[in-house]
Design a protein around this nucleic acid. Structure first.
Lengths: 206, 206
DNA sequence: CTGTGTGAAGGCTTTCACAGCC
DNA sequence: GGCTGTGAAAGCCTTCACACAG
């Protein structure tokens, strides 16, 4: 099974399953049915089973799935087996909040450095991640072979910074800037646009 | 055309189109072709045209779309014509960053209050939004008829807080907590899970 | 008998091809 | 001639129905 055969939405749900599995493991549960796992992840059992068959057979008929085994399998598929170094670009309001946010490390990512045009701007003192001038960015990416970047710069410079990231060797960008990034084939961008998410919701309220 | 006939993805893209249109208007452009607008929004021209036909005919054949007119039409469809009051629950790391983030107000939302279990926690002094104890939350929602909420509480209490929000009358939740929310029919949840977005990207890096 | 694995059906979204209007 | 509007086709993803293993 080649990577590109697995639907993007399935990949996304694999992360959800893995979260639930980790919680189950912590609570000492050894096996779980597709029914239970799917409900906890907010999907239908058939969906879960179909998702899993994309990369193998992991269950035992009549019994369910081994919590630990399935979790390890998913971790492998997602490429999360090793710690991924990540950089953050744009240490403004949102950027600094993310630097202090613990959620990334818990899931196996380490933000190894942040970059900003203004290194000396006033920021909370408890940030452990070094904040470097953006002139050093490309060199840093090359040296450390950084492949993942979080982009929290203003919208009007987002494309330009993205270009620099890609030129340095970054392969995937988590973009929080309110801008549509145009990138070469092979580069992956996930955009999270907070204002648009809210707008989207406001359509559904009466 | 009933609301539910418009695909969710189309609704999402309408916000993107509107952003581009506002930029075009600011730069004094009067009309735009589906080709140009679609490229700027990162979609195919046919996609854009199909999206628009879900709620009317807005273009002039041989010419394109009136920038101002189309923008107003989209704003109307999205229900953004009036300012929507929003509350934020969970004034921790991420929550306070969002309170100081200017992106919401610019798009027509006003965060009217924030709620937290610990009102006296140390926070930046430049936050304008009042931070209230969560015991006052339900009453506030009822009084002000708040329909939109941003949820930035820890994952283990997210479901419980969501239940309270819904009981008070909130109809849509923008959820940043790493948890799958189970809600009654008619309530809409958009979840933004930062760690999962990163995991998702890591699958695509070689 | 319980619960997974999976081909086939169904539903939703995107893309195409071209008709229709300025 | 240029560009929008749209039915039809294609593609993708989800759900179903049931075979099959423990």
């Amino acid at each position: 099974m080649h990577k590109s055969d697995i639907p993007r939405k399935t990949i996304y749900r694999l992360s959800l399953y893995n979260r639930v599995l980790q919680r189950l493991r912590d609570s000492g549960q050894g096996t779980v049915s597709s029914q239970a796992l799917a409900t906890a992840a907010g999907v239908k059992p058939t969906q879960l089973r179909k998702d899993l068959t994309y990369f193998g057979q992991w269950g035992t008929r009549g019994l369910g799935y081994n919590v630990d085994g399935l979790s390890k399998a998913i971790t492998g598929v997602l490429g999360m087996a090793k710690l991924q170094p990540v950089i953050l670009v744009g240490a403004g309001q949102l950027g600094t909040a993310l630097l202090r946010y613990g959620g990334f490390a818990k899931e196996g990512f380490e933000v190894v450095a942040a970059f900003d045009a203004d290194v000396d701007r006033k920021r909370p003192r408890d940030i452990k991640v070094p904040i470097l001038p953006d002139t050093q960015m490309t060199a840093f990416i090359r040296e450390r072979s950084v492949k993942l970047a979080i982009l929290t710069v203003p919208g009007n410079v987002a494309q330009q910074v993205a270009n620099e990231l890609i030129a340095g060797g970054v392969q995937a960008i988590l973009n929080f800037a309110p801008a549509v990034l145009h990138v070469p084939e092979g580069i992956v961008v996930n955009s999270v646009d907070l204002a648009i998410e809210l707008e989207n919701l406001s359509y559904f309220v009466k």
